[in-house]
Design a protein around this nucleic acid. Structure first.
Lengths: 288, 288
DNA sequence: TGATAATGGTTCATATTTTGAACCGTCATT
DNA sequence: AATGACGGTTCAAAATATGAACCATTATCA
């Protein structure tokens, strides 16, 4: 998100820097490194970051002094440093993934008044990670399944839409019919996946359990690949357009937060799809 | 009294920070987090870092704004942030040191039956990179990935013996005594370093933890300079001359392999020292 | 319970640090 | 030999960092 922000709103960043601390300015340099562009020279980085050479140089020196950046002695280009490995290990020990998802799910369940849950993709299997029920209503969805069928659940459609391509073969190989609405033909499934890709959300309209409306959004981890999905299961009888809007808005927030906590970020394409399918802006928590 | 102490302590630390950039000062706050102390409150951190509360607070804000720190909403304490996972991923993709070291460490742990680990030197700090325990014995050393004291660990002695000269000053400035065998006088440390240079190995005889014998060999990267160390921590009670011989032989192999994977090579002088202190030839895989 | 001390967070005048245009030396290209 | 791109450096001007004192809450405890 930070990367997108910096690259997209490039002209604004100069103004932005006026109220940034020096440390933030230096650290922002790190966001320009990626697996696609792992090493950057001084002049090149100045151009990318849109900042003065002397300043950029001093920032790099500061970052190098604490091991966040190191210089390739052969090319004089800079790259991310070894200290990052060290701190990442402590971070992972401090905030394990499940723990990190819990707070987001709790908020999601609380605001929507419905049951929220998160799933994790491992190979071609989608496992339930944890669920959070809202005490708001007497009737509510109870998530007690461990393995989520790819073809019949909203989380599964997210995985199929944004995960590795080989998932589709795995899905069509067992198109079990759970309800009358379960997609049991490959074409039906393809259409649902296509809709999911267009909107950034998956919707399962009583396709796994009758009376349950499922909505899901994808989550990504540090590999940059789909790591799982976050979903809300609501009772169909009290479903409204207003609730749908709330669920979608909150799913975006939750998907962003969980991805962030897992060291990943929502790809720009999905953010764009969300922006189109949900009208309200969602930059609430940035640069607070 | 307490005030006096605080002020003198403060002036000392202040000297250390005089020539540091603001960004470095903010980033050094991160070094106070560890698996043993994963969350730190504001006041507590001020005491640990010996800095002003307002300054520390602003530094934390800066770090939080870029995701290097986050606040536990429940306790208001600070902990390492999610951005570290992101950058560590890119770093590892750029320079896959950890991956490169793993296989060698695994073999080292397997053959010696003891715990093997690798450390990385960044500035004047020696970080733990990864550890590999052998399932061979019930009791074994457990390496809590952390910062390795230069004066008290075998890896540290390797760094002092074969790394940059300014490490020695950094080491003598904090000669903390961990056990009765910890070298706490510069002269003692100098002697140990000298032995390390002569043999090409460092040996830490219960100088960091009681009952732990540490052996280490230096590893070098593409810069031609010392990059870190590879070490074996064995339980003192089952230590024998035969095991020492095995450890040294295997350390040579591991140090060569890791250095090679990191784009470096063992300097001829150290190879010569090894040849003298371990009788069997170890030129098995060279110039293949 | 009420007094006390510790906590996280904020303010503002002071002065230190950061900043960037211009500069230097080197290297590869023309 | 001229050119331009590169990494790196300098110094006056200006934005930024600093810390003592302050506020509001929250333990702590007599």
């Amino acid at each position: 998100m930070l990367i997108n922000f910096c690259q997209t709103f490039f002209e604004i960043t100069q103004d932005k820097f006026l109220q940034m601390s020096s440390a933030s300015k230096a650290l922002t340099l790190l966001t320009h490194f990626s697996t696609a562009r792992p090493e950057i020279g001084l002049s090149q980085l100045c151009r990318i970051a849109g900042r003065d050479k002397a300043t950029t140089y001093r920032h790099l020196q500061a970052l190098e002094s604490v091991g966040f950046i190191e210089q390739n002695p052969a090319t004089k280009h800079y790259r991310l440093g070894p200290a990052l490995m060290h701190f990442a290990q402590i971070r992972e020990a401090t905030v394990p993934r499940k723990e990190a998802a819990k707070s987001a799910l709790s908020a999601l369940a609380d605001v929507t008044g419905e049951t929220a849950h998160a799933t994790v993709l491992s190979g071609t299997t989608l496992y339930g990670l944890c669920a959070c029920e809202s005490p708001h209503h007497g009737t509510r969805a109870v998530i007690d399944i461990n393995i989520f069928p790819l073809h019949a659940t909203a989380s599964g459609h997210c995985a199929l839409a944004f995960g590795p391509a080989d998932l589709f073969d795995a899905a069509v190989s067992s198109l079990t019919g759970f309800t009358s609405a379960t997609p049991t033909k490959p074409d039906e499934l393809t259409a649902l996946i296509e809709t999911t890709r267009e909107t950034g959300f998956a919707r399962a309209d009583q396709s796994y359990e009758a009376e349950i409306q499922g909505f899901a959004a994808p989550i990504f981890d540090h590999t940059g690949l789909l790591a799982g999905a976050v979903a809300v299961a609501s009772v169909a009888s009290r479903f409204t357009l207003s609730l749908e809007h709330t669920i979608k808005s909150e799913l975006i927030i939750a998907a962003r937060e969980i991805s962030r906590n897992w060291g990943g970020a929502i790809p720009a394409g999905i953010e764009a799809a969300w922006a189109k399918s949900v009208k309200i802006p969602n930059e609430l928590e940035s640069t607070s």
